[in-house]
Simulated scan of single mutants.
Amino acid sequence: MTSTLKISLKANDKIYINGAVVRVDRKVSLEFLNDVQFLLQHHVLQAEDATTPLRQLYFAVQLMLIDPETADRSREEYRKMLARLLAILSDERLLAGLKHVDALVSEDQVYEALKVIRSLYPLEAELLQNAGTQEEIAEIALPRAVGQ
């Protein structure tokens, strides 16, 4: 189903659209008349900021959208990370959220999957805070995502 979506950008904002990076030089509104995969600049996670398991998962999913040429490799890394998270986490809220993320990624709803991952950050922070020692947190940590 196709829907219309209107986005307003300020001067020098970037938007990632189907793998292309677009920067606007003045305030502008974009109206998408068909389905499109996009990511706003303020939702782009830099590699050095992927410091927690969910942020690393986000980074891998983000690369599927931003860099279509490496999407298959990013999807493979995402699958590995997700499997590890599902195996070690016991928090039902996080598990349910990650299963929802996986369903969205499987349906190629990458932008929606990123929104769900961002919504899980507070739960992850709570888990990491309650983990206590750095050794316990290190056990939860994942290998670096693709592109790092």
Results as ranks from 00 to 15, higher is better:
S3H: 07
S3P: 02
A11T: 06
N12W: 04
N12P: 02
K14S: 11
K14F: 12
I15V: 05
Y16W: 05
Y16F: 07
N18C: 03
G19E: 00
A20K: 15
A20Y: 12
V22W: 06
V22R: 04
R23L: 13
R23I: 14
V24E: 09
V24T: 15
V24Y: 12
V24R: 08
D25H: 09
D25F: 10
E31I: 14
E31H: 07
N34Q: 03
D35A: 08
Q37H: 10
Q37L: 07
Q37F: 03
L39A: 08
Q41Y: 00
H42N: 09
E48L: 07
D49C: 07
A50Y: 01
T52W: 01
T52V: 05
L54G: 12
L54M: 13
L54C: 13
L54P: 13
Q56H: 15
L57F: 07
F59R: 08
V61R: 01
V61S: 02
Q62Y: 08
L63N: 14
L65D: 00
L65S: 01
I66F: 00
D67M: 02
P68D: 02
P68R: 00
T70G: 05
T70A: 06
A71Q: 01
A71V: 01
D72E: 14
R73D: 04
R73G: 02
S74L: 10
R75A: 07
E76I: 10
E77I: 10
E77V: 10
R79Q: 15
R79V: 09
L82G: 00
L82C: 02
L85A: 05
L86C: 10
I88Y: 00
L94R: 01
L95A: 03
A96L: 08
A96F: 06
G97E: 04
G97Q: 04
H100A: 15
V101G: 03
V101M: 06
V101K: 05
D102K: 10
D102G: 06
D102S: 13
V105G: 03
S106N: 14
S106Q: 14
E107L: 12
E107T: 05
D108S: 13
A113K: 05
L114G: 04
K115M: 13
V116Y: 12
V116E: 15
V116C: 14
L123W: 08
L123R: 10
E124P: 10
A125Y: 04
A125V: 03
A125Q: 08
E126K: 13
L128R: 05
L128E: 01
N130C: 03
A131T: 06
T133W: 06
Q134P: 01
E135S: 00
E135G: 00
I137L: 02
A138K: 09
A138V: 03
E139Q: 14
E139G: 08
E139I: 04
I140M: 11
I140D: 01
R144M: 09
R144T: 12
V146I: 15
